[in-house]
Structures are given as structure tokens and as C-alpha cells.
Design a protein around this nucleic acid. Structure first.
Lengths: 171, 171
DNA sequence: TAGCTGCCCATGATATTCCAAATTTACACA
DNA sequence: TGTGTAAATTTGGAATATCATGGGCAGCTA
């Protein structure tokens, strides 16, 4: 799983070091896919061969001529850069993606579970601030608590086994 | 389960010993995740691989582009530090997290069931005081009582099956 | 030929590992 | 109940390995 956030720099040749923990997550493969995030946040999203295999399987399940499939194939498959890390774990970021995500100088790699994101540091800081504000919402923690207790229930972990939280059980 | 509270110190290199009882709770794994608590209390929250696996399963259940999921992924996945204990059970606390939680010199580890917390001692004392005040509220014990009896019922225990409790019979 | 690309090595900074001493805790015995 | 011994844990510091980064060189392309 891609976890945590790391800062890195684009050197004079346009090269970027992939953080070592993320490299380890790629399972020895040196192939990296990069595309523009679909959520409009302006960052890039990336992953390795394992992620792309998952996406392929997912897209194959969608009806061939459906809009959903066409959109996702266009954005993720056609829109991806297919890059190869060098011996020291660096890739060369394509110009068009850099431009789209306003990447220049220093950048941030943020873990996103099965994929990772590449951010302009200023944009990332702004995004973090908006997320921090949203985290204060009771709804967010309530939704998390519900989902978490469902997972516990499913796994029979011997913790809380009930279908719902009792009033007063959440803060 | 992470239980009880322990005090520890940050050494000159920013290293901290994880209390031995908490290490035992990590099940032999030396990987530790740390992030800023979502409740705004200002402490750090942490756990091992088991907890992170639970969180991953939880987040995967939430709708991919929902605000709830984005907030939690940002705070817990991207926002956590991915640390490794050394042979003697120490981790190096990242500077940014120390700063965010105002950690310096001595710190407190507090058990939180599936996770643990790391506190600035002064803040922890203030938090304890506020909890003590809130514990006086009849609503708190009432809510606990309701939840507890539901659990008893769910687990097939029906109700209390042990020796009959006499009013005032416990010391 | 000029520019781009991939490949390689060098280096400083950082993080990790290892070793050893000091302190605390647990336990057995008187 | 107090004391001594052993074990475990917490510390401090140094050696080692890893990583991010800069630059050189050759080959390919335009």
C-alpha cells in the first residue's frame, strides 16, 4: 500500500526520484504509469503494473461501448504516460503532464492506497487545509465509525459485533 | 488491545522507545504508522500493520470520490508516517508530526484500544481533566450502560449470568 | 551537429543498524 | 518483608548502509 507523503525535486534534466518506500511497493517492476487525476484536483495519479492490471480487469467488466468505459479508457489508458525507472529509481516526467499539474522545482508524492499522487507543493498544502477543515465535520467521523464497525463485524474480529452504534457511542 | 498509559522521552536524535507492552501488541511486526488524530485534540495516533489493514478495508468500503473517503485517505493514508522500529524498539518521530503535536522532551503513550496515542504531557493532563469532568455527566454512564447491555444480549449471554449483584455489594 | 535519452558512477546527507552501558523491573530466597 | 540476583528494558553513541541528487559519457534521433 502506498502510504505517507514524501517531497522530491525535479532536476535540471527533468528527472524525479521516486521515494524508496514507493519503489518497494512496485514489487521490483520498474514500470510506472502516470495520468491526470480524474477528480479535477489538478494532481497526477500513478501506479505500477499491478494497479494497471486491476484497472484493465475493471474496465473490461464495463460494457464495451458504454460512456463510462470510453471515458475511463480515454483518461486512464490513453491518457497515461508509460514510464520506466532508471537504475537509481528516477523517472522523467513528460512535459505535458508537468504542465497540466503545474509541476516545477519541488514536488510532493502522496500515498493513496493502491496508487500515489504527485502534487505541486502549494496546491497540496491548499488541498490539505481543505481536508483538515472537512475532517472537523462530525459527519465524517460518524461515517468512518460506521464503516469501521462494519469491517470489524465482517472479520469477526471479536470486537464490536453489532450492526449499529448505540446513541452516545460516538463522539 | 493497547491499554494503559506510559511515559517516555525523546532523545537527542528524535528517537523514542515504544513501551514494551505496546510493542507486544504489534504482533512481532516492526512497522508503525503515525498520524495526527482526526478529532482535533492535537495528539498523534498510531498503530501497526493490523490496524492499517483494517483502515484500508474500511476506506475501500467508502465511495471512491466521496468527501468522507478523500478526507480520511488524506489524513490517515497520505498523512501518516510509515516508520520502522529498530532492534531495541525505538522509532524516529518525524519533525513535522512532533511540531504539530508539540512534542518535545518527555511524551505520553496512551492506549486507545485498537490504536494508541502520543501526547504532549501537559496537553494530556488537560485532556484528562476535561474527561474527568465529563465523566460526571449522568448521560455518559447511561449511554455506556445501554451499549453494554446490548453487547451482552448480542453475545448470547442474555444478561448478567454471574453471582447475583447485591446493591452496594462491590467495594 | 545539436539535442535528447538512457546508463553509469560519485558524493553528501540522511537514516538505519549495531554495540554497550545504565536503569528499571521481576523473581527467588532468606 | 526485605534483599540479592537475574532478566528485561531503556538509554547513549558510533559504525554502517541507504537514498536523493548531481554530473559525465555514449548512442540515438532529428
Amino acid at each position: 500500500m502506498f502510504v505517507s507523503t514524501y517531497e522530491s525535486a525535479i532536476d535540471a534534466k527533468g528527472r524525479v526520484s521516486i521515494p524508496a518506500p514507493f519503489r518497494a511497493e512496485l514489487g521490483g517492476s520498474s514500470r510506472i504509469f502516470l495520468w491526470q487525476a480524474l477528480d479535477g484536483s489538478g494532481c497526477l495519479e500513478g501506479g505500477g503494473e499491478a494497479l494497471m492490471a486491476m484497472y484493465r480487469a475493471t474496465l473490461t467488466r464495463l460494457a464495451p461501448q458504454s460512456d463510462v468505459r470510453k471515458v475511463l479508457v480515454n483518461r486512464i489508458i490513453a491518457g497515461s504516460a508509460d514510464l520506466k525507472m532508471d537504475e537509481t529509481g528516477r523517472i522523467k516526467l513528460p512535459e505535458d503532464l508537468c504542465k497540466a499539474a503545474e509541476l516545477e522545482g519541488r514536488i510532493k508524492f502522496a500515498g493513496n492506497m493502491d496508487s500515489f499522487q504527485i502534487w505541486n507543493p502549494d496546491k497540496h498544502a491548499a488541498y490539505n487545509a481543505s481536508m483538515e477543515a472537512a475532517a472537523a465535520s462530525p459527519d465524517v467521523m460518524a461515517a468512518f465509525g460506521r464503516a469501521y464497525s462494519e469491517v470489524l463485524h465482517q472479520q469477526g474480529a471479536g470486537h464490536y459485533n453489532g450492526p449499529k452504534l448505540v446513541e452516545g457511542g460516538e463522539s
